[in-house]
């Protein structure tokens, strides 16, 4: 008797638990998990996305096409994306950490400066792209200044290498503010006593940073690196505003390739294969970084 009540209570509470997670699970499954499933399925088909026409199963053909890359359009996009993700993440984090150290103390000027560093992030990437295109384009503000001063112009957006560097620069400008806030928060968590103790032991500024501050920041570093790489891997809006992928294909990112090339040309099968690969790459990169950082973080716990 007593036993059945507990079982019933167990079932009921299980049911209640299920109900509590249901809304989140339903929305997330319906619009993220199922689409990923669709993407995997379509990635093995040749399909133009038109409902009245059926997908044809082609096995690994789309993936083979991506890897063989017969017309040399996907490998450059993969390369561009990787450069943006790695170099961009490095610069974003470098700038954010440097400024966090500089703006650590809460003074009126520093509070103002923090807001100024953060504001590009509220503008939206597309608008940032258009704005910088107007500043750095062939007839943009900077080149007009140079021209009016009788100097030769700079090909910020018209030379393939420059364009990629410019793109990364603009992304860093727009994004490091968020990581700056995370670093500032991380710095608050660094024990002042430890730092003071280290200083009393005769350690100089750089040494305190290396042995106390940096290890204590380890968890923050992991989070900021992973979040910045994840957001850099899907860069699209800013490209659209700044270069629209050009010149040639110099700034076509993987996401641009998926949305503006494959999908826009009715190649849904290929677009989905590209999407699946990007999801895999994002996952592998993130987990690798988290695994690599684990040791550093263990160090942090020892210090903290």
């Amino acid at each position: 008797m007593a036993r059945t009540t507990t079982t019933r209570r167990g079932v009921l509470s299980g049911l209640a638990n299920g109900l509590m997670t249901l809304p989140a699970a339903a929305v997330y499954t319906g619009l993220t998990v199922v689409p990923v499933g669709y993407a995997v399925y379509y990635s093995f088909t040749q399909y133009n996305g038109i409902p009245s026409q059926a997908p044809t199963w082609v096995g690994w053909e789309n993936y083979a096409r991506i890897i063989a890359d017969p017309i040399g359009d996907l490998r450059p996009a993969a390369w561009v994306t990787l450069v943006i993700a790695v170099v961009g993440a490095f610069l974003v984090n470098g700038a954010a950490l440097g400024l966090a150290l500089l703006l650590r103390r809460t003074t009126a000027l520093n509070t103002f400066a923090r807001a100024v560093m953060f504001y590009p992030h509220v503008l939206s990437a597309l608008i940032v792209g258009f704005l910088w295109q107007a500043i750095l384009g062939p007839q943009g503000a900077v080149n007009n200044l140079l021209e009016n001063a009788g100097r030769s112009t700079w090909p910020f957006l018209s030379d393939p290498d420059w364009a990629l560097v410019t793109l990364i620069g603009v992304i860093v400008w727009a994004q490091f503010g968020v990581q700056l806030v995370l670093y500032l928060a991380g710095l608050q968590a660094v024990s002042p006593e430890l730092q003071e103790a280290a200083r009393l032991d005769g350690a100089g500024g750089p040494q305190v940073f290396r042995h106390v501050t940096w290890p204590a920041l380890a968890p923050t570093v992991t989070v900021t690196i992973v979040t910045s790489i994840l957001s850099l891997l899907k860069v699209y809006d800013v490209v659209l505003g700044l270069t629209n992928g050009g010149p040639g294909d110099a700034t076509q990112t993987w996401a641009y390739e998926i949305l503006a090339v494959s999908f826009a040309n009715n190649k849904v099968g290929l677009a989905c294969a590209q999407a699946v690969l990007l999801v895999v790459v994002a996952g592998v990169l993130s987990f690798t970084i988290i695994a690599l950082r684990r040791r550093a973080e263990e160090g942090a716990e020892a210090v903290g």
């Binding site: 997330y28 689409p35 669709y38 996305g49 899907k234 999801v279 994002a282 993130s286």
Partner: peptide, 29 residues
């Protein structure tokens, strides 16, 4: 079960939103 559920949700953090937009269109339709 719930530990797995958390993992199931967290996995979604590594799925770039714009990338699954194309298949999501079919679901929404």
């Amino acid at each position: 079960l719930f530990r797995f559920l958390l993992f199931f949700f967290v996995a979604g953090m590594f799925v770039p939103a714009q990338i699954i937009l194309v298949p999501a269109i079919f679901v929404l339709k």
